[in-house]
Amino acid sequence: MELISIKPCNNTFFGDGNQFNFGSNNFIRSKNTPFPSVFFGAIFTAILSENDTFRGRFFKENKYDHEKILKINQVYLYNEYSKQLYIPAPKDLFLDSNDEIQFGKFEKVDKKLNSLSFERILKSPINSDFKKVTNKYINLKNIYDAYLKKQRLRIDLKDEHEIFVKNNKVGIGINKDTKMVEEGNLYKIEQTEFVDDYWSYIVEYEIDKDYTEKEYKGIEIKCLENGYLKLGGESKVCKFEKIKNRKIEEFNEHRKDILKTNILKIVFTSDTFFENNIEEVLKGDIKIIGVANDKPLYIGGYDMKKSEENKTGQVRRMYKGYSAGTIVLIEIVNLEKVKDKILNFRENNIGLSRSKGFGKCIIIEEK
């Protein structure tokens, strides 16, 4: 696995999947961190740029096997000054007006008295002042320590405003034929940038050497070292650099811990979608008994192969997804019987677009 630091040189725009419409009342928001597929496209393009021989063969053979070549794993936020890493905070945490942290609790509900899909619902702490965390990020070192052990006083949370700043830009639409401004084609777009130069994204990626040696014989694909790539909806220039980070290595080692209890939490650490219903993915001896999430995401993508075959331009399919931090509480009927399936879910993200970074998660015991 390789790590690269990506630092935008200017503000960026990361779409959230909502439809773009012109009009003075239409405000287009920008995500803090783009969908992981955006990093996939940027990194694969940079790999093509840095490997001339491979680039020529890739376009000549026209196999569209980029998802078999490259895999995106976890995306982190990194502060170069404090040397700390952050990921979206789990959605069973609550904060009061004084920023005191408490854990929510999944409690059983009477199915006869409500129409909820699952048998447990996340309840807030007794104090009504507490609200579920929104747009917060948790220190990576806290996940397998303070968070797992429910030691709330040791949890380090960052609000989005401590990491990102938003700017607004007004734009106009141009008629493609006349090259003139069209009446009513006004829009306002939000842009994202880090609050200072200490912040950057760190992205894990892998090149499947076994596959490339088989399919692209005689060609060595070099990993990225340093340079520039383009990222986001406006193709903004970002500086990238190969790095190493011991804290990330330790975090990934914890992911391999053996699970011993039959009530587990799947905590998604990246945005997630399923080609089928999540209940179709987790079925049989695995039962979903509760979910903690926000409003759904809408995730689409560009399919180069279908676009080329149909000659109709971009081909997109929209999926209803879950934001990073979503928790799925599961009950295992027979842990030994399904342990391999659980570990496979953690490593390979059953039912997901595996290579593009969606559905990364940790699986921990519900204490």
Rank of each mutant, 00 (worst) to 15 (best):
N18S: 12
N18Q: 12
Q19G: 03
Q19H: 12
Q19D: 14
Q19K: 13
F20E: 14
F20S: 08
F20V: 11
F20W: 13
F20D: 14
F20M: 11
N21F: 15
N21C: 14
N21P: 08
N21T: 14
G23Y: 00
G23L: 01
G23H: 01
G23P: 04
S24Y: 13
S24A: 13
S24Q: 13
N25M: 13
N25R: 07
N25W: 02
N25K: 14
N26G: 04
N26F: 13
N26R: 08
N26W: 11
F27K: 15
F27D: 15
F27A: 12
R29N: 08
R29T: 06
S30V: 07
S30M: 11
S30Y: 03
K31I: 04
N32H: 11
P34I: 00
F35E: 11
F35R: 03
F35P: 08
P36D: 08
S37Q: 07
S37L: 03
S37D: 15
S37G: 06
V38F: 11
V38P: 06
V38M: 13
F39G: 01
F39W: 06
F40D: 06
F40G: 06
F40Q: 07
F40P: 05
G41L: 09
G41T: 08
G41P: 09
A42W: 07
A42Q: 07
A42Y: 04
I43L: 01
I43Y: 05
I43G: 01
F44T: 02
F44L: 03
F44D: 04
T45L: 11
T45I: 05
A46N: 02
A46H: 00
A46V: 00
I47Q: 06
I47M: 08
I47C: 10
I47P: 09
S49H: 13
E50F: 04
E50D: 11
N51S: 03
D52T: 10
D52I: 12
D52W: 04
T53N: 12
F54V: 02
F54T: 04
F54E: 05
F54S: 03
R55F: 03
R55H: 05
R55G: 07
R55S: 15
R55I: 01
R55A: 14
G56W: 02
G56I: 10
G56L: 10
R57P: 07
R57E: 15
R57Q: 14
R57I: 12
R57Y: 13
F58L: 11
F58I: 04
F58S: 02
F58V: 06
F59G: 12
K60V: 05
K60C: 04
K60H: 10
K60Q: 10
K60L: 10
E61W: 00
E61A: 01
E61M: 05
N62C: 11
N62R: 09
N62T: 06
K63P: 05
K63V: 00
Y64I: 09
Y64D: 12
Y64R: 02
Y64L: 08
D65L: 11
D65P: 10
D65W: 10
H66P: 01
H66I: 02
E67L: 15
K68S: 15
I69F: 01
I69A: 02
I69Y: 01
I69W: 00
I69H: 00
L70D: 06
L70C: 07
L70I: 07
K71G: 02
K71T: 14
K71N: 13
I72M: 01
I72Q: 01
I72L: 00
